[in-house]
Amino acid sequence: MVTVLTHSPEETESFGSRLAAQLARGDILALNGPLGAGKTCLVRGLARGLGHDPLRVRSPTFVLHHVYREGRLPLHHLDLYRLGKGAHTDEFDLDLLAGDGVVAMEWASLSADAALPGMIVLELRPLEGDSREIRLHDDVPDRVRKVAGEWTA
């Protein structure tokens, strides 16, 4: 289990940006954690790292799906929050989206579907103040684990 600590929203975003450098078409990231854990913040970093305008990244809770296209790889930003517990990810045609670029799914833990093979799972946990813990599941690819291992803000 690899764990990353960040101490501000800027650091969480910065970690996302460094992670993005190691991502490729077909990657699906599952972002779990309670309200206010920093999931959207991390996606803002992913967007920046992929060459999108980070200021365009907002919560996709209401419309479920945002896509950012101007960078080196499209980023599909999904949010299962409003779908509630037992959500079906086949609503999104994940294969199609992953074939197009990188997928980042907030609240993936609400999904009723079995975790997809190869999904990169990150658990975010709020600590005191603005600090956050980001845990990477054991089966994340080495390129992702390496970013976490080398993380210093």
């Binding site: 479920l64 779908l83 509630g84 037992g86 609503e91």
Partner: peptide, 8 residues
């Protein structure tokens, strides 16, 4: 009824 939005 479904405890959330089901887009389909």
């Amino acid at each position: 009824r479904f405890g959330g939005v089901v887009p389909e």
